[in-house]
């Protein structure tokens, strides 16, 4: 009796969990299948397996959506933001974790306020400031913005790794006469690489997927990253579902692959602190 009841509970549990899995992944699977169907077939067979696999959708989407250019733009924005943000956040995280910083509480408060201000409040003045400085429609302009937005979070993430490092390494270096920066560069930085990797993944994902600032600050088609150009592409080929599905898969695929490879770090980074990608 006891055993069979446990068995029933177990079957019920796995059924519910599997249904939830279908709910999460089913739509993505449909997107993948539709990306290799003709638009006519999607009309007949919107959510089933493809009768015929048409890879031409990908070639067409790549061409029509100018993916060579938009992926390049996205890589510049993502890579640039990661490099700048991690450099600044690494230094700050080190000071917060390892140096007896007078007024560290102020920084925490400052970041708390700074990260909870709605983007829409500062975006309007920022846009006109950036226009005055000639930074609208430049990649560097948007990289600076992303860095300003993501660096507090990255700082705290990296700091939490640095706090956990054993004391002995630093003491040994201090005796050797190393200054704070030497300690950071030669000891702390190499040891806290998991923190940098996690922060880099979160920041990179945030930039790759980011829409609001990209659509506002980059209007020229030659500067557009993959997110906003895909949005324009969807509007242009609205009813061409096969084509726009293929275009969406091109944007999604690198993220999914990287996520599956490094899911522990992604999840760890994304669930720490209040950052909504």
């Amino acid at each position: 009796m006891q055993l069979s009841r446990r068995r029933v509970t177990s079957i019920a549990s796995y059924t519910i969990l599997t249904l939830m899995m279908i709910f999460a992944l089913g739509p993505i699977l449909i997107l993948l299948m539709n990306s290799v169907k003709s638009t006519a077939e999607i009309g007949r067979n919107p959510i089933g397996f493809p009768e015929e696999v048409i890879l031409q959708n990908y070639a067409d989407a790549w061409e029509q959506g100018d993916y060579a250019l938009t992926i390049r733009n996205s890589i510049i924005l993502t890579g640039g933001t990661i490099v700048v943000t991690l450099s600044l956040a690494g230094l700050a995280g080190y000071a917060l974790a390892r140096l007896d910083l007078k007024g560290a509480g102020i920084i925490t408060f400052y970041f708390l306020v700074g990260t909870s201000v709605p983007a829409q409040l500062f975006m309007i003045p920022l846009f006109f400031m950036w226009r005055g400085l000639g930074l609208v429609n430049t990649h560097i302009g948007l990289i600076i913005i992303y860095c300003g937005i993501f660096s507090p979070f990255a700082t705290y993430l990296i700091r939490s790794y640095m706090v956990a490092l054993p004391e002995e390494f630093i003491d040994a270096a201090k005796i050797d006469g190393a200054n704070n920066f030497d300690v950071f560069w030669h000891i702390i930085r190499p040891l806290s690489w998991p923190g940098f990797l996690t922060a880099g993944l979160v920041v990179g994902l945030g930039v790759w997927n980011e829409f609001l600032f990209a659509v506002t600050f980059l209007s020229g088609p030659e500067f557009k990253p993959i997110a906003t150009s895909l949005f324009a592409f969807q509007a242009r080929f609205g009813r061409d579902w096969g084509l726009t599905s293929a275009g969406s898969v091109i944007m999604m695929l690198p993220v999914i692959v990287l996520f599956l490879l490094l899911q522990r770090r992604f999840i760890e980074g994304l669930t720490q602190g209040g950052l909504k990608a």
Binding site: L17, A24, P27, N209, F211, A227, T228, S248, V255, I256
Partner: peptide
């Protein structure tokens, strides 16, 4: 495997999810 599957939609860009559901 369940945990990872549930998390996947969260890492996909809004613009892709929008395309997906606009069609569905």
């Amino acid at each position: 495997i369940f945990r990872v599957s549930y998390f996947i939609p969260y890492v996909i860009a809004s613009v892709v999810n929008v395309q997906l559901w606009r069609q569905l």
